[in-house]
Amino acid sequence: MTTATLATTTSAPGARLFEALFEDQSAKARAARGQPIAIRGLKKRFGELEVLRGIDLDVPAGQFLAIVGRSGCGKSTLLRILAGLDKPSEGTLSLSQAGTASATPRIMFQEPRLLPWARVLSNVEVGLGAERKLPEAEERAFQTLRAVGLEAKAQQWPALLSGGQRQRVALARALVSRPRVLALDEPLGALDALTRIEMQGLLERVWLAQGFTAILVTHDVSEALTLADRVVMIDEGRITLDIAVDLPRPRRRGSVDLALLEERILKDLIPEDANPPEYAI
């Protein structure tokens, strides 16, 4: 009895989301909404330091791609270039145009980056960019806020929300313009373990419903495997591994298939040290 009630309440915001906003669910429709990305010979240098040393990557429309790697491997730089925050030193990046929907990729950061002096609803409206002046702007912002289950907090100050709620507002802000590409820079990195799992579920449902192309940068391999269609590993500025994750969704945490894949990726990620340091005091 209790569990049943609990299940209904937790899934309620997600369920409403799809009825209200994003009806297209088929893979075909998803490909139509997302945007393919093509990267050729991409390099990025900061002074002497070459962070990206020639990346070639094709992301089909609507794919959920996860990029994993150790800190400092260049994965965040790649994402920032993708989102238009940095310019590549060499090579090309093309987000091919199709249809009329918003072409600017949206990015979600590890920190929510909400304006502390704006109410939750106007923070979501920031995501509309130039469309903020349209008459239906507020209604759209409110609908998106409802989609992440925070419509009750619309007039609240961000300082009064919990970390997970703030990140949900940031997600609503990224989604309100119905982006065709969403870049996620470790968006769940600062959340506690339980909130993380909830947010992973929300991200997956939103992606399934909206069908954008999603690029998730993370250092958490199991998170990448829970969410992504494909996992790419970057090491010292190059792609060193590219595997498809062909498992049915929603994926069961701790299933054998996931564990095997995780082990394989971790093996590549953590090099076998020939001489591990002796522990001695």
Partner: peptide, 25 residues
């Protein structure tokens, strides 16, 4: 500066960035 970067990535003009991010900050 993270808020300023956020504002830019959401296409705020310089004037908007000043009015909505820098001055209140």
């Amino acid at each position: 500066s993270q808020l300023v970067e956020m504002g830019r990535s959401y296409g705020m003009s310089n004037l908007e960035l000043f009015r909505r991010v820098i001055l209140p900050g």
